[in-house]
Nucleic acid binder design. Structure first.
Lengths: 215, 215, 215, 215
DNA sequence: TATGAATGAGCCTTCATTCAT
DNA sequence: AATGAATGAAGGCTCATTCAT
C-alpha cells in the first residue's frame, strides 16, 4: 500500500475545493489539531487563512460543518479503504509468516499515522464526546473487509502461524500497540527524541512473540 | 495499596468538601466526562448540582479551578502512588517472576481505570490540548519512583526474567496494552459485551510472552 | 480653633457606635479613600474589619448607607462648624491685619485637611458625580456664617487691609490656593518630599501680596 | 497653539474614527463625565450610542480601553503641548513681562478647560484612585519641556520679573489658581452666574501681584 | 467572490444582599 | 450579635452567525 501521504487521498472531495475553501480547510485542521475544536474560534480560522470571517460561512454551513468536512471522509472513505487495503495486502501475498505480516502492518500504519497526525488528533478528541462520530467508526468497517480480515487471521491460524485467540482480541493487541507507540511518542512526549528504527523493530518483535502460537 | 474503587482514594482532599461543594464537584466530573470541559458551562454545572451559578465561585476560584481540582490529584497523588506501588510490589516480593508481576499490575490498573473512568476520560481529553497539563504528567513521576522503577526492571533483567530492552519502552509496552484494552472496551465500544476474564488473562499472557527474555 | 484632629469631632454620631460598627466604619473610610466607593466591595470591607460580610447589613442599611454615614456629618455638621469657627476666629480678634488673618486661616485649614485627608478625598470624588451631595455642600453654609464672613471681609476692606474685590472671589482665591497646595502634595504627588514650612510661608506671603490693597 | 475649542485638537486620533466608533466614544465621554467610569456600564454606553453592546469590543479592546482612549491623549499630547506652549510663548516674545505672560497662559487654559470640561472631569476623578494614571501625569511632562520651563522661569528671575521662589512652587501657584477658578465655577457651582471678564482679570492681577518680585 | 459592520445569545464572574441558624 | 450559605441581578466580554454592499 502506498500509504496516506497525499492530502487528496485523505480528502478526495478536497480536489474540488477552491483555493479559498482549501485555505479555510487547512487552517481549520491546523488549529483544531493544535487547540481543539471548541477552543478554536472562527475568527482565528479566518485570520490563519487570511480571509474574512464571513467568508467561512459561504464555504461551510457551520463551524460544525468544517469539523464534519474533516471527519466524515475518514469514517466514510479513508477508514474503509485502509481496512480494505489492509486485508488485500495480506490476502494477495498469501503468506503465513506472522513476522512478515506484522512488519507490513505496523510500518504501514505508522506511516499513515505520522502523515495524518493532525487529523487523527482531531478525530481522537471528537470520538471522546461525540456519539454520532463514535457510531461512524463502527459503521466504517465494511462487512466484506471484516470478513476478509477474519479470513486472513483464520488462515494464519490454520497454518499455525498465530495464536488461537479470539480474532477481535488479536486485532486489538496489534492496534493497541501501534496506537500506544504513536500516542506516547507524538501526543504525550512530542518533544522527546527517540530511536525510531529500534523501537519499531522491537514493537514488531514484541507483537510477534506475544502472538506466536508456540509457547 | 488496595487500589481504585473509592472516590476518596482518588480525591483525598474531597473528604473535607461540604455537601454543596461535593455536588458541584461531582456534577462537573459528570458533565466534563460527558461533553468535555469546553462544552460544559458553569450554568449547566449549577443546574445539575441544583444550586445557583454564583455559588460555584464561592467553592472554586474559577471554572478552570474545578478542572484542576479534578485533574491535579491524579498528577500529584494518584500517578506517583501508582508508580510507587508498581515498583514496590516487586521489591517486597523479592521475586523475579514476570508473570506474577504482570498479573498484579494489570488487574490493579484495570480495576482502577474502571472505577474512575469519567475522571480519566477528562484527563485524556485535556492532555491532548493543554500543554501545562501535559507537563504535569511529566513532573508527576517523582525522581525516586523513577529510580525505583528502573532498579526493578534492571533487577528483572539481571535475573534474566525480562527482555533486554530499553526500560522506557518496556514500560510503554505494558502501559499501551493495558490502556489499549481499556480504551477499546470502555471508550470505543462501550456497549459491546465481552469475556473479561479470558481477555485479561490473555492480555497478561501476551505481555509475558512478548517480554520473555527467552527467544 | 482646635482643629479636627479628633475622630469624634468629625463624626459625633460615631460615639454611639459599637466596636463592631466602628470597625466597619473605619475600614470603609480607609478603603473608600484608597480605591473609591465604587471600587470597594462589601467583601473587602468585611475582611478589613475582620467581621462577616452579612454583619455589615445589620449595622448599615446599605453599602450606600456607609457612604452616607461618612459624608453626611461633614455636610451637616462639620462644614457648618468649621465655617462658623472660621468667621468667629476673625471676628473675635477684631484684627485688620491681612497677613495675620491669612496665617491663621491657612494653617488652620491645612491642619484640618491633613487630619481628615481620607474622608475629604472620599468627599471630593463623590462631589464630582452625585448631585445630591453637591447640593448638600451649598446648604452646608449657614446663612449667619455667610453673613459673618462677609462682615469680616468688609471690615478688612474698610480698614483698607484687603483689596476691593468681590467677597466671593476673595474667598475663592484663598480657598483655591489652600486646596491647590494640599491636592498637589497629598493627591497628585503623594510620594514626593517637600519643605512644608517654607512652602506654607510662601503660600501665605503669596496670598497676602495678591490680596494687598496697595498696588 | 490656538488652544482648545476643537474636539480633534483634543483627540487627534479621533479623526480616523468611523461614525460608529465616534458614537461609542462620545457616549462614553458623556456617561463617564456624568456618572463616573465605574458607575457606567458598557450596556449603557451601547444604548446611548444606539448600537449593540458587542460592537463596543470591536472598536475598543476593553471597557478600560475606552477610558484610556479618552485619557491617554491628554497625558501624551495635550499636557506636553500645553507645557511646551507655556514656555515657548515666553521665549518667542523675548519678554520678561510677567503680566502679559500670565494673561496669555490663563486665558488660554480657561478656554481649553471650558471646551473640554467633561474629559477633564473624567481625568480628575481617575487621578484620585488610579495609580497608573497618576504616573502618566508625571511622565507626561517631557524632559525638554521641563527644562524649557525652568529656563524660562530662571530667565524671568534673572530679569527680576518674578519672585525668587522654587520653580515648582511658582508653577503650582499658577496652576492652583487657574484650576481653582475653574473648579469652583464649573464643578462646585455650575448653575451660578458670574462676571467672567472681571474675575479672570482679577485672577491675573492677583497672580501678578503675588508673584511680583518687588515687595 | 469577498468583506466590514453588526448582533443575539451565551459565558464566566462579581457583588450586594437575604436568610436560617 | 454574628455567621456561613446562598442567590438574583448585573457586568464585561466572546463568539458564531447574518446582512448589506
Amino acid at each position: 500500500m502506498e500509504s496516506g501521504n497525499s492530502f487528496y487521498e485523505l480528502f478526495p472531495d478536497a480536489k474540488n475545493f477552491s483555493q479559498t475553501k482549501m485555505d479555510i480547510f487547512k487552517s481549520a485542521i491546523q488549529l483544531f489539531a493544535k487547540s481543539g475544536y471548541s477552543n478554536t474560534s472562527t475568527n482565528q480560522i479566518a485570520k490563519t487563512a487570511g480571509i474574512s470571517e464571513a467568508l467561512i460561512f459561504r464555504y461551510f454551513k457551520n463551524k460544525k460543518g468544517i469539523l464534519q468536512a474533516i471527519i466524515d471522509p475518514i469514517a466514510n472513505n479513508i477508514l474503509p479503504d485502509v481496512l480494505r487495503e489492509f486485508s488485500r495486502e495480506i490476502l494477495h501475498r498469501q503468506t503465513a509468516n506472522l513476522n512478515q505480516f506484522l512488519n507490513l502492518v505496523v510500518n504501514n500504519r505508522i506511516k499513515f499515522f505520522k502523515a495524518n497526525f493532525p487529523v487523527i488528533k482531531i478525530y481522537i478528541s471528537e470520538i471522546l464526546y461525540d456519539d454520532s462520530i463514535r457510531k461512524q467508526v463502527l459503521n466504517a468497517v465494511p462487512r466484506d473487509v471484516y470478513q476478509d480480515f477474519n479470513d486472513e487471521i483464520n488462515y494464519l491460524k490454520q497454518n499455525n502461524a498465530i495464536i488461537q485467540w479470539d480474532n477481535n482480541q488479536i486485532f486489538r493487541f496489534i492496534f493497541s500497540n501501534i496506537f500506544g507507540y504513536l500516542v506516547s511518542h507524538y501526543v504525550v512526549f512530542p518533544n522527546q527524541e527517540w530511536n525510531e528504527k529500534v523501537e519499531v523493530s522491537n514493537l514488531i518483535d514484541f507483537l510477534a512473540r506475544g502472538l506466536d502460537p508456540v509457547k
